[in-house]
Design a protein around this nucleic acid. Structure first.
Lengths: 167, 167
DNA sequence: ATAGATGCAAATATTTTGCCGCCAG
DNA sequence: CTGGCGGCAAAATATTTGCATCTAT
């Protein structure tokens, strides 16, 4: 396995850090049965260039191992969610009612999406952590999950709007 | 039907000043056809003590006017969403895959939910606005939607945990 | 060996669509 | 009057469940 422990650059978000492994390792550590199907599903998720919904995960996983069914994908996602290893997003429902999944990174980040072209970027900020601290303090909440999604027109799409109006 | 420029009252917990009306007023202003069904749906949404999903909205609306169908609720919600008058939330999927709806307030707020008791509180913060400004600047995004949901154990539930462990 | 996963098929739930008669503006 | 809207039923999606079988540990 290519153990590249160096940081990925800004825009791209392919998970190269723990080669074929962060989720898998977590599962093993937690004594959770690592079946071949689960291995495929987590690999698919970890190597995806962008967030996928359950159907997309299924398609890819099924291509790799035709035995894998939708049911297994749902069950695996549920398991990972209940283990707190992945997040379920809806990305502002910009493209329907799909739910997208992503494996937890080390830090919380914000999803910033363009409502026109659909590009999604991840954003981290000191301010965000301050905000969470404030919420925790003011609401007396012991925060375990947080999600922020922001949508709008990106610079590129604004530029294009000038020649061609919105769809 | 009921005179259009009259207030109907009779709701129960419906304020007659603006509440029975923000959405309705917006729709009229925008020359969007105000059918009796739409009136009922927006009233239900505006007078609800908490966020509801499509089914709940349907139940209540259907109680008020048995003619109203699920389809109409869906179509009305779509319309309101496309007008940017309501937001669609999932509240961290704490209770399954439901989507909740809420009419836009004047200011953006954060939804803070307890993962145990399910209580949802709304939270506003200067920091939040700063964060949005930062995102807008750094990502070159003209923000039109934003959503933040935070989950964790509230103080009450933490207290209870000491005597009775998690469900 | 055995608790726990998977597959299959069918049950549920949720959302969308086509068509036509009806009502708000 | 008329174009948009709601109702109905059915299609298309999405998710969950029961049960027998298989497998990772």
């Amino acid at each position: 396995m290519s153990s590249s422990s160096h940081r990925v650059s800004e825009g791209e978000r392919i998970n190269v850090d723990q080669p074929t492994g962060k989720l898998q390792r977590e599962l093993r550590q937690r004594r959770i049965r690592l079946t071949s199907q689960r291995r495929v599903v987590v690999q698919v998720m970890e190597s995806a260039p962008r967030h996928m919904d359950a159907s997309e995960i299924f398609e890819l996983a099924h291509q790799i191992d035709p035995n894998i069914t939708r049911v297994t994908v749902y069950r695996t996602l549920d398991m990972l969610k209940s283990q707190g290893l992945i997040d379920e997003l809806d990305l502002l429902h910009l493209r329907g009612h799909r739910h997208y999944y992503e494996s937890h990174g080390p830090r919380d980040h914000i999803h910033v999406a363009c409502i026109r072209c659909g590009k999604v970027r991840e954003f981290e900020s000191e301010l965000y952590e301050q905000l969470m601290a404030q919420i925790s303090r003011d609401c007396g909440l012991e925060i375990s999950i947080a999600r922020t999604e922001v949508g709008g027109l990106c610079a590129d799409c604004r530029a294009q709007s000038k020649s061609a109006p919105p769809a």
